[in-house]
């Protein structure tokens, strides 16, 4: 149990229910989303082994996404899976044709490797932890001055073929 406590280093500042709602809406503004997903959006939610908070966030995100009838107009399924490593992540994205990969807390040390592994992989990477966006996750969420804030790493978005509309980018805090 103590190991689980020590595994927690970061916190989702925006309530997960709002994050899920925002994610569902933002996905519909990604011009490549339908092409990437095909007939179904496949969403993988990663947990950090040994991190209780990561499991808690993953469960809530899975439940929240499960309540959305469609994502970007497509039926969808969510899979919670333990994180094995960056190479395995990239392999899974290619093999399973992942549309979205979601990371909760506990991945701070892994983000540089994830960013590198996902270069050139057609997938929308998302995190509940705002700090991860600057480090290489495409989309994240924060609270600024009491209101939700969308964060986007534009450089990484291009590398992962995520093409958000310009009018949506205007609503986001952009990291290059």
């Amino acid at each position: 149990m103590l190991a689980a406590h020590l595994g927690r280093a970061e916190e989702a500042t925006l309530p997960l229910a709002i994050q899920v709602e925002l994610l569902v809406k933002v996905a519909s503004y990604d011009r490549n989303f339908q092409q990437r997903a095909g007939d179904r959006a496949r969403i993988f939610i990663f947990t950090k082994p040994g991190n209780g908070d990561s499991a808690r966030v993953a469960a809530q995100v899975e439940a929240g996404l499960g309540r959305a009838p469609l994502i970007a107009g497509l039926p969808h399924n969510e899979t919670v899976t333990p994180y094995q490593g960056a190479a395995e992540l990239a392999e899974l994205c290619r093999k399973e044709r992942a549309s979205i990969v979601f990371f909760g807390p506990g991945f701070r040390q892994d983000i540089p490797a994830i960013r590198q592994a996902l270069d050139g992989v057609d997938v929308l990477s998302v995190s509940a932890i705002p700090e991860y966006v600057e480090a290489g996750i495409v989309l994240g969420f924060d609270v600024a001055s009491g209101r939700p804030e969308l964060l986007v790493n534009l450089t990484q978005a291009r590398r992962q073929k995520v093409a958000l509309r310009s009018d949506v980018l205007k609503l986001m805090k952009v990291f290059q």
Partner: peptide, 21 residues
């Protein structure tokens, strides 16, 4: 982007129930 703006204009409060909502 009205639907997105609507969500982004929501306020987040923690004091009402001791958790962010």
């Amino acid at each position: 982007t009205t639907d997105l703006q609507s969500l982004l204009s929501e306020t987040v409060v923690v004091g009402a129930s001791k958790s962010a909502e």
